[in-house]
Amino acid sequence: MDYHELMIIGTGGRGVLLIGRLLLEAGINKYKHALFFPNYAPAMRGGESECTVVLSNNYINSPVMFNPYFALAMTSSSLQLIEDRIKSGGSLILDGSVISDEIKRNDIKTYRIPATEKAVELGGNQAANMVLLGAYLECTKAISLNFVEDALDRRLQEESKKPILTLNKMALNEGAKLMANYKI
């Protein structure tokens, strides 16, 4: 597929925008066009934070979308904002560790990935976003994990950032594994 659109939504400070940007940075290796739009207007720091990422080999028209094909929800309150908006036939990945809500839609595929639990197990709950990103990439094959790892290497070059880098890479790969073994 040469077109991917994704909306990531969660609580500010949990790395919603970060994984969006990483996806974009990595995506540039494979796609002719790419776009990232952070819409954190309603409430910065602690409020709902969302971003859209589009990867495409054709010119990307709208930088914003109301009905994404793919959504990634990190909290229960953000799930409520996005569930009804996902395109029919689309997919939803949610952090099953913190979201227990029942999904009312039966025309979309839902993947409950225990991202926070996995991240804690690996060494820090702040890596839950990476688990979800890994799961997304395994699900869509939008880009290879290597490109994301390269992007992480570029961002976390300093010696002091090494532990975080390692944690993030592990979380990314574990997320992909969770998705590969996922049974709906």
Binding site: N39, P42, A43, V64, F66, N67
Partner: peptide
């Protein structure tokens, strides 16, 4: 705009 409170964007769907 989709959200008449804070934020809000005119989407192509609209």
């Amino acid at each position: 705009r989709h959200n008449t409170g804070g934020g809000g964007i005119i989407h192509p769907e609209r």
